[in-house]
Design a protein around this nucleic acid. Structure first.
Length: 503
RNA sequence: GGUCCCAUCGUCUAGUGGUUAGGACGCUGGCCUCUCACGCCGGAAACCGGGGUUCAAACCCCCGUGGGACUACCA
């Protein structure tokens, strides 16, 4: 059977890091097995409707490169992929359950439920449970006569449809990650299947759609593990075969708490021990999508013994992925490794591609776009020293503008009494160079150093300072070559006048 | 509280009865070198505790402990 997986998020306003990983694993598993990856929007909670949430969701998934084979954007055999547009389907199947006696109407008001809760609490502080023990005392089609039910329905009394969980059953799931997990039905309550507003709850919609959409593998977060018995029972009632299940470990903050959007305003001012769960924040900060994908893939999965690679492309992940290698234990989200991976992916990028991306960054940052040929040379020099692509301009301004300031620390450390003399000598010598290129520059510098009986650093550092205003950057010879003779000489002459005043 | 899940360096992890417990990030010593990076070599750093089973346990079993999820007409 062809593998079909789905990512079924509910549009809450932002995409959670953990959600993205769930999407990724579903994608990887499907692609690994030449299967189909489906995106389904679980928007059955009208009270939590957030304007634009779905659009945001779609764009983040697309950004990550996890393009669904079927979903809201692309259509597909099983459209619509919005649960809010499939309500008749759920009503129909709920009715089926009702007809078979697997479900019942419940007319309890919120006050009735509240009373149940109170009573339960008085009897030993246990949380309330609408189940085989209590349903006999509530207002539902099990306790009311057929006529009463009919009247109530006809009168439009608000009601829900609940699943009638049997009292003595053991449900067992063979989770692909956790192995056999068993649940006793006495611990399961009579879950609401269809809400009083006519919308289904997750449990009904999920099972119905997974079946209808022919999902073969349900890969989702561990928070769903405890509702598996309800789902298993639903499949049984419908007479359907349940898909394979795999419950992923959770991802937590560095302090072990749950990742939450609360109290997080920016990635640069995170509360201690906390991390931003919103994928959009990382995109905004300028992380490479490859780095994010790579990092979250490694949060709970690894290629296995003997394979010590850390850096993976999406294609490589597809090739290597397997559910058997997914961990059981929760992971902590650590920015440090993400940052490292970010630099790694920048370093591995094809130079033309990187240049194109830098051009786009410069555009969004409203900087002037230099000639591509020149920019590409700069990009090449900066590639191994770029923590973030978006920092390109700030880290290499001096390739685009003459320095306006000279780092005081560097002036103090590198500017000596003979600096002016050496620089002027270099100006004179380099003026003679016909081809201004790194080996010629290096040769010239060596010549001067020898003639003046000074170490090479004595001349190189002041030149770097004079030309760039900083003490860090690419190799000086390459840097000067890219900058070009004219610019270098101009900057040196300016610096020779300005720097002495700073001492 | 109940049910369920989980437990190897600070973090991500390898490991499925016999290993000097391996790798990666981070930290750190050094090398490379004109600086900063990159890269390379080295170091510190872990099997939650207690019982079993076994000639032998990080690995299997039990009990603790700790963490977590669920316990909604939210997903």
């Amino acid at each position: 059977m062809k593998v079909r997986t789905r990512f079924a998020p509910s549009p809450t306003g932002f995409v959670h890091i953990g959600g993205l990983r769930t999407a990724l694993y579903n994608y990887l598993f499907a692609k690994k097995h030449a299967g189909t990856f489906i995106l389904r929007i679980e928007d059955t909670d009208r009270t939590r409707f957030v304007e634009g949430a779905t659009e945001n969701l779609l764009s983040v998934i697309e950004w990550a490169g996890l393009t669904p084979d079927e979903g809201p954007a692309g259509g597909g055999r099983f459209a619509p992929y919005y649960q809010s547009q499939r309500t008749e389907i759920y009503v129909r199947f709920a009715q089926q359950l009702l007809d078979k006696g697997f479900a019942y109407y419940a007319f309890d008001t919120p006050e009735d439920i509240e009373a149940l809760r109170k009573k339960a609490q008085e009897n030993g502080g246990q949380p309330p449970k609408y189940d085989y023990q209590t349903r006999g005392q509530m207002r539902n089609s099990l306790t009311m006569s057929a006529a009463q039910v009919k009247d109530a329905l006809a009168a439009g009394v608000p009601h829900v449809i609940r699943l009638k969980i049997p009292s003595e059953r053991v449900f067992e799931v063979n989770d692909l990650i956790r192995g056999a997990v068993t649940f006793h039905s006495s611990q399961v309550d009579d879950q609401v299947l269809l809400k009083s507003d006519g919308y289904p709850t997750y449990h009904l919609a999920n099972v119905v759609d997974d079946h209808l959409m022919e999902i073969t593998h349900v890969i989702r977060g561990e928070e769903w593990l405890s509702s598996v018995p309800k789902h298993l029972y639903l499949y049984e009632c419908f007479g359907w075969q349940a898909p394979q299940m795999a419950h992923l470990p959770l991802i937590f903050n560095p302090d072990g708490s749950k990742m939450s959007k609360r109290d997080i305003t920016s990635l640069t001012a995170l509360p201690a021990g906390k991390v931003d769960p919103d994928v959009a924040s990382y995109i905004k900060k300028g992380y490479e999508k490859e780095a994010i994908i790579n990092y979250i893939a490694l949060l709970g999965w690894n290629p296995g013994e003997g394979d010590e690679r850390q850096v993976f492309t999406l294609a490589e992940l597809v090739n290597e992925f397997s559910l058997e290698r997914v961990n059981k234990s929760a992971a902590i989200f650590d920015l440090k490794k993400l940052d490292w991976l970010n630099a790694q992916h920048i370093m591995r990028r094809n130079i033309d591609e990187l240049t194109d991306q830098v051009i786009q960054d410069l555009q969004t940052q409203q900087h002037e776009i230099p000639a591509r040929k020149y920019l590409k040379q700069v990009v090449e020099l900066m590639q191994p020293r770029l923590p973030f692509r978006t920092q390109f301009y700030d880290l290499s301004v001096y390739f685009f503008k003459d320095p306006e300031q000279y780092d005081p620390e560097v002036v103090k450390k590198r500017w000596k009494e003979d600096s002016i003399k050496l620089i002027l000598e270099f100006v004179t010598e380099s003026a003679k160079l016909e081809v201004y290129e790194k080996t010629a520059i290096e040769h010239t510098l060596h010549t001067i150093a020898e003639r003046e009986q000074v170490g090479l650093g004595r001349i190189i550092h002041p030149i770097r300072l004079a030309v760039s205003g900083t003490g860090a950057g690419p190799g000086l010879y390459e840097m000067l070559e890219v900058l070009g003779k004219e610019t270098v000489i101009r900057r040196l002459q300016t610096a020779v006048k300005k720097i002495p005043a700073l001492i």
